[in-house]
Amino acid sequence: TFEVERIVRKKIVHGNTSYLVKWKNYSSKDNTWETEDDIRTKYGDLVDDFEK
Rank of each mutant, 00 (worst) to 15 (best):
Y43E: 03
T1I: 14
D48G: 05
S27L: 10
E34M: 15
F50Y: 10
D30S: 12
T35H: 10
W33A: 02
F50G: 00
T17K: 07
K22D: 03
I12K: 07
D48R: 11
L46P: 02
E5C: 07
Y43M: 04
Y26N: 10
V21W: 00
R6H: 07
Y43T: 03
T41I: 13
W23A: 01
W33R: 00
V8F: 04
N16I: 15
I39Y: 01
V13I: 11
D48S: 10
K29D: 13
T1N: 13
D38T: 12
G15M: 03
F2A: 14
L46V: 08
D30L: 14
S18F: 15
K24H: 07
E34A: 07
I7A: 00
E5W: 04
N16F: 10
E51F: 05
E3G: 06
Y19S: 01
T35A: 13
E5S: 03
G44C: 05
T35I: 07
D30F: 15
L20I: 00
K22T: 04
V13H: 11
K24Q: 08
I12N: 06
K10D: 01
F50K: 03
L20S: 00
L20G: 00
T41G: 11
T32D: 01
D45N: 12
V21I: 11
T41F: 12
E34P: 01
T17P: 06
V4F: 05
D37M: 12
E51L: 07
D30N: 14
G44D: 05
G44L: 09
V13N: 09
K10Y: 04
Y26W: 07
N25T: 08
D37H: 13
R9G: 15
V4L: 09
H14G: 13
I39Q: 01
S28C: 15
D38Q: 09
L20P: 00
E3W: 05
T17L: 08
T17N: 05
V21G: 00
D45G: 10
L46I: 10
G44M: 10
E36T: 03
D45C: 07
L46A: 06
I7K: 00
D45S: 11
V4M: 07
T32K: 03
E5K: 00
Y43D: 04
T17H: 04
K22C: 07
R9K: 12
S28G: 09
Y26L: 15
W23E: 02
D38Y: 14
I12W: 04
F50P: 02
K29Y: 11
F2K: 15
V8W: 03
D37Y: 13
D37G: 08
K42W: 10
T35Q: 09
D49N: 10
N16M: 14
N25K: 07
I12M: 06
R9S: 14
K29F: 10
E36I: 08
K29N: 11
E36L: 07
K42V: 11
D45L: 10
E36K: 05
T17C: 05
D38L: 12
K22L: 04
T17I: 13
Y26P: 11
N31Y: 15
T32F: 01
I7L: 07
N16L: 14
I12E: 10
I39T: 04
V4P: 14
G44A: 14
